[in-house]
Deep mutational scan, measured.
Amino acid sequence: MLDDRARMEAAKKEKVEQILAEFQLQEEDLKKVMRRMQKEMDRGLRLETHEEASVKMLPTYVRSTPEGSEVGDFLSLDLGGTNFRVMLVKVGEGEEGQWSVKTKHQMYSIPEDAMTGTAEMLFDYISECISDFLDKHQMKHKKLPLGFTFSFPVRHEDIDKGILLNWTKGFKASGAEGNNVVGLLRDAIKRRGDFEMDVVAMVNDTVATMISCYYEDHQCEVGMIVGTGCNACYMEEMQNVELVEGDEGRMCVNTEWGAFGDSGELDEFLLEYDRLVDESSANPGQQLYEKLIGGKYMGELVRLVLLRLVDENLLFHGEASEQLRTRGAFETRFVSQVESDTGDRKQIYNILSTLGLRPSTTDCDIVRRACESVSTRAAHMCSAGLAGVINRMRESRSEDVMRITVGVDGSVYKLHPSFKERFHASVRRLTPSCEITFIESEEGSGRGAALVSAVACKKACMLGQ
């Protein structure tokens, strides 16, 4: 009897593995994704193909990295998701002549009506938060230079001027797309009239992360975010950046690689679950690469896999709870928690219980395998993109072996128990001629924006502006 049951459990697990095998990517698959990513990057950089390229390769006008001589107080704003952060950054000489960066910050959550109302409502709310922060720190009387981390696709015309191309991540505030974001912020500050600010720089969160990590390690020339969304930036040779005049030196390019796949480059790798996630998203047909990796989508992918296993009578005796059938019910943090389970399955059992399920031991094991399959594919897909960037940098610099540091931020990278190990191992397999160091950014977005502002202020002083 026991043997029969054991055989049935083994057969069930084997069927589960057959279904989950769809998520496995072979090294040849990853090399294919990497080569296609490089081709799209090239198209994004070139003037004649930029418009139709899915990977936009947006110039950021960040050319210099901090040298350690900029000092002063800077205000930093960070808008990239449902939370908005205001930070005071003091850049100065530390002990023994070292450079020191001290920060104080406060988080504000953005109400739904500000995210989806008008641009005026959104930026009025942001300036209200700045006003509140300055009151708390008794700094209303000071006109501070301000660095703005704005983590949406922007076409820069200068370091302090950028046109919002399109909202992502659930934002829909009308009247912002096609307009200068810094102008919208300046107008809102003017409307309030109770404080003055000098907006000197606007950067993407990947750029802010790279600059913040450069402060720790001067070989950091790539910034990457794996959180709600997924994106990367890197220092490109100016001669390859056709959208900006000049051939000397390097400029940081914001790849906006989340949109890779929007022209069909990933079609052969998309599964039924991916198509369902895409169809029910706020932007169907867009940001397809990001939807395979980002935390906004990972939990939902797992939920759809679990429903398939229920329908195949391989999980929960073929019956799903009402909660499990509800879109968004299986949160991405559950994926991390399930994979963090120590082996007694308590954590998995508790999560499934909150979803109205009474799982068996085998159910718990199957749910864990589903989570591992989805998150491992995410790590491997992400590795193909980064390997594409790094191999490109090595080739354009004609280096036999390139040493490089990548600064990384984002909740999936930082909080998932195995993502970074799987990701690092896969990147290294795909970049055999590179020695890569990964560092995690601390308060990256805010500190990085302030350091970019410090560079901009120093330049302005040198130019006598």
Rank of each mutant, 00 (worst) to 15 (best):
H218S: 09
M87E: 06
I19S: 04
F330I: 13
Q239E: 09
E96Q: 12
M115A: 14
G249I: 04
D365A: 12
G444V: 10
D132K: 12
L288Q: 09
I189G: 09
M210C: 05
I436Y: 02
H380C: 08
F152T: 15
R192I: 12
E442Y: 07
L309R: 00
S212L: 01
K346P: 04
L243T: 06
A320Q: 02
M210L: 07
E120Q: 01
R428P: 02
T118G: 08
K39N: 14
Q106F: 09
M8V: 14
G448S: 09
K458H: 07
A329H: 02
R43M: 12
D217H: 11
V222W: 00
D267S: 05
L315Q: 00
D400G: 07
T431S: 08
T49M: 01
N350P: 02
S441T: 05
T361P: 11
I159H: 12
K459R: 11
D311K: 02
V91W: 04
M238Y: 11
N180P: 12
M210T: 03
Q287V: 09
Y297H: 08
P417S: 09
G178P: 07
Q98G: 15
E322H: 04
E70V: 06
S336D: 06
L47G: 15
L45P: 00
I163C: 14
G72E: 05
V71W: 02
E442K: 12
S76T: 05
V253N: 02
G175E: 11
L75V: 08
P111E: 14
S396T: 10
A454F: 11
S174G: 13
T376R: 09
G261S: 01
G407Y: 00
W257E: 01
S398E: 14
E443G: 09
F195M: 12
G444I: 12
H50D: 04
V455S: 13
R447F: 13
G170V: 15
V310P: 02
K13T: 15
I211W: 10
T168G: 14
V401Y: 10
S281T: 09
L77E: 03
H50G: 03
L451G: 11
Q323Y: 04
P66A: 13
V33M: 02
N204Q: 09
E9A: 06
S64A: 15
S383T: 03
L266K: 01
D29M: 02
D135W: 03
P59K: 02
E339T: 03
G448N: 10
E268A: 11
G249H: 01
A320T: 10
W167V: 15
Y215R: 05
R422M: 09
R308P: 00
I351C: 12
F195Q: 08
V199P: 11
L2Q: 08
R7P: 14
Y214S: 09
R377G: 00
S398G: 03
G92Y: 05
S441M: 11
V62A: 04
A21S: 07
I404V: 15
V253H: 01
P359L: 01
E300P: 01
L307H: 04
H416E: 03
R43H: 03
R392F: 05
K346S: 10
K458I: 03
E248P: 03
I19R: 13
E435C: 06
K414R: 10
G410A: 04
V200M: 09
T65W: 13
F171K: 09
H317W: 09
Q337G: 09
Q38N: 06
Q98T: 11
R5I: 14
S340N: 04
G299H: 00
V241P: 00
Y234G: 02
E399D: 14
S340K: 05
R429A: 14
S109F: 04
A176Y: 05
G264Y: 08
D247C: 08
E290Q: 13
F330E: 01
S373G: 13
V310Q: 11
M402Y: 07
D311G: 05
V389P: 00
N204Y: 02
A10P: 11
Q98A: 14
G97K: 11
Q106M: 10
C233Q: 00
F269S: 02
S100E: 08
K104M: 09
C220G: 03
F171Q: 11
E440V: 07
I159G: 15
L463K: 14
P111A: 09
T103N: 10
S441I: 04
F260A: 01
Y214L: 11
N179D: 12
T354G: 13
T103V: 08
L47A: 03
K12H: 11
I390G: 00
M121E: 10
E128P: 02
Q18F: 15
S398D: 07
W257R: 00
Q465I: 08
K346E: 11
S109E: 15
G44A: 00
D160R: 10
K142E: 12
R447W: 12
W99Y: 06
S383P: 01
L2R: 04
K102H: 03
S109A: 12
D217I: 01
S336M: 12
G92S: 10
M41Q: 04
E157F: 14
S280I: 08
E319F: 10
I351P: 03
G258W: 03
S174K: 07
F269K: 02
V455N: 07
Q106Y: 05
L451P: 06
T82F: 15
I348S: 05
E268P: 14
V244C: 05
L276S: 12
E256C: 07
S100G: 14
G446C: 15
L2E: 13
E237Q: 06
T405D: 06
E17A: 07
K346H: 13
N204K: 01
V406S: 00
I130A: 05
V62L: 06
F419Q: 01
D278H: 05
E157T: 14
E112P: 08
L184M: 15
S453P: 11
L2M: 05
D262P: 02
V101R: 06
T118N: 10
Q24H: 15
P284Y: 06
G147E: 05
M238W: 02
A176N: 10
F74I: 01
N231I: 07
G227D: 13
V62I: 07
L324M: 03
F423W: 01
T209M: 07
C213S: 11
S360I: 05
V86T: 08
S263F: 12
E268R: 09
L314W: 03
E312S: 12
F84P: 05
E96F: 15
H137E: 08
A208H: 08
K13N: 05
V207R: 01
N166K: 14
V207K: 05
Y413L: 04
F23S: 00
L47N: 10
L185V: 01
H137D: 03
Q287W: 10
L292C: 10
C230K: 05
S54C: 13
V367R: 00
N204H: 14
V374A: 09
